[in-house]
């Protein structure tokens, strides 16, 4: 051992200890999902299952009341819709605020930005339902998806806006001379160049919508068959049979964890990029 690595040893011990605490709850959840319910309750101290069993997954996949395949499907289509919508609306809005020059632009951008801090919270669900009711979509997961079309993803707009600003304006100007319109210039020139930032936005909104809890809960109250996986697992916890359903909850949680952990594994640089943008000002 060289002198330098010996000097670094205490650091590594500390970092590893923190690492252990960081992954322990995840590891615990995944491993406990392979325990039988009685083992979860009687020998909580063992991390690894004494008897490895797939029963929880089999039960979860076949249960009527806790219909995992159905919830998984709901999660998938909800997430796919949200990601598509977010990428489309934030890229057009970001482009407009980067390249547009129209009366009211500054004011509109200021209003959109202020929404980060001004919000009345969840009580606004009543008037939002009232609006969606006029098209028969309140209390329906599709209603929430429709609402997302009209959502203002200000952080994503910031991301696109600052990215478009790094592209040379000459790109579109020559197209304008050839008679290309502002909107067409976006779709044929700018959008293809936005791939890197679109990947970041896609990953971030995938994570956000897959993990979404409160809003999908409110929109599926009267339609349990539309529950997403996160909503279903959390609903099981607040139900009366929570104590006897830890095995199902842990199996459900593990299934819900896999896609985000996988996404983070293959694309963690995008998470970091989005994070840096969360701190941008002005």
């Amino acid at each position: 051992m060289t002198k330098k690595s010996l000097k670094n040893l205490p650091y590594y011990i500390f970092l590893t200890a923190v690492l252990f605490i960081t992954i322990l709850p995840i590891l615990y959840t995944v491993l406990a999902s392979f325990k039988s319910n009685s083992e979860i309750l009687t020998s909580p101290e063992s991390l690894f299952p004494k008897k490895f069993t797939l029963d929880n997954y089999i039960t979860a996949l076949n249960s009527e009341s806790f219909n995992v395949p159905r919830m998984l499907w709901n999660s998938i289509y909800y997430t796919v819709c949200c990601v598509t919508i977010n990428m489309l609306t934030s890229s057009t809005a970001g482009y407009v605020f980067a390249r547009g020059n129209f009366p009211g632009q500054k004011a509109l951008f200021a209003v959109f930005s202020s929404l980060m801090f001004i919000s009345l919270g969840s009580i606004t669900i009543y008037p939002q339902f009232e609006v969606l009711d006029t098209v028969g979509l309140s209390g329906n997961l599709w209603g929430l998806i429709v609402m997302k079309i009209f959502g203002i993803g200000i952080v994503n707009i910031y991301l696109v806006r600052s990215y478009v600003r790094t592209l040379p304006a000459a790109l579109e100007e020559s197209a304008y001379i050839d008679g290309c319109s502002f909107i067409r210039a976006f779709f044929s020139i700018i959008l293809p160049l936005l791939k890197p930032i679109m990947a970041t936005i896609g990953i971030l909104s995938f994570q956000a919508s897959w993990n979404d809890y409160l809003m999908p809960t409110l929109f599926t109250l009267t339609r349990p068959e539309q529950r997403t996986l996160i909503v279903g697992v959390a609903a099981l916890k607040s139900s009366s049979e929570a104590a006897s359903s830890w095995n199902l909850m842990l199996a459900g949680s593990t299934i819900a964890l896999i896609p985000v952990l996988f996404a983070y594994g293959v694309a963690n640089k995008h998470f970091v990029k989005g994070l840096a943008s969360g701190a941008v000002k002005g």
């Binding site: 709850p25 995840i26 996160i230 916890k237 998470f271």
Partner: peptide, 15 residues
């Protein structure tokens, strides 16, 4: 260290 941040708070509450 960043990993826990990608997990849903609903799942974290449960765990």
């Amino acid at each position: 260290y960043y990993l826990p941040n990608v997990i849903s708070v609903a799942i974290i509450g449960l765990i």
